[in-house]
């Protein structure tokens, strides 16, 4: 057990936990933010994607110790009032089906758009291949990322 300090969605948390516990379970069960999902536990599916110092880490394999003192953003913190261009585009194109993977999809897409405001289809593949969707919303995710880029770029 160790005392770990995390900043999650701009709020500071001091938690006493096993530093080997994946960040995912700390976010879900200790901090209580459930939007970040458990899908595979081995960085295969991307459902658990959060931003750790701005990067789209897979929280199911990121040990809590690595996040100590770092800045974390989860789906709940990506915008106020569901106003992120990606969220708007996701709603406009009615992307989700079951929705379980979509937090991770949006967190990955956010890094893509930050680094490349005008992504091509290939850029989208290169950013999003780590996020699985069993329902099959891929073609809409692609369209929604293009749409979000449009919204973002005015």
């Amino acid at each position: 057990m160790a005392s770990i300090s995390l900043t999650v969605n701009k709020k500071k948390y001091q938690i006493d936990a096993d530093p080997e516990m994946p960040l995912l379970w700390a976010i879900r069960d200790l901090i209580g933010l459930k939007g970040t999902k458990f899908g595979c536990g081995m960085a295969q599916c991307g459902a658990c994607t959060v931003h750790l110092d701005g990067e789209a880490v897979r929280s199911c394999v990121t040990l809590l110790g690595r996040a100590d003192g770092q800045e974390i953003v989860t789906i709940e913190g990506i915008s106020d009032n569901t106003s992120h261009p990606l969220q708007k585009a996701w709603i406009e194109l009615q992307v989700p089906q079951c929705g379980y993977c979509q937090s991770g999809q949006i967190m990955s897409a956010a890094v893509l758009l930050r680094e490349n405001p005008h992504p091509t289809d290939q850029d989208i593949d290169e950013a999003m291949m780590g996020n699985l969707c069993r329902c099959g919303t891929y073609t809409r995710i692609r369209k929604a990322i293009h749409r979000a880029a449009e919204i973002m770029n005015g």
């Binding site: 459930k34 999902k37 709940e76 990606l86 969220q87 009615q94 989700p96 929705g99 979509q102 949006i106």
Partner: peptide, 23 residues
């Protein structure tokens, strides 16, 4: 009609509650 689904805003903001999210 292509009526917007009320669960979509919940599902893009982490607010939709799945079985695994019950506390």
């Amino acid at each position: 009609k292509n009526y917007p689904r009320p669960d979509v805003p919940l599902k893009v903001s982490g607010k939709a509650v799945y079985g695994i999210d019950v506390e």
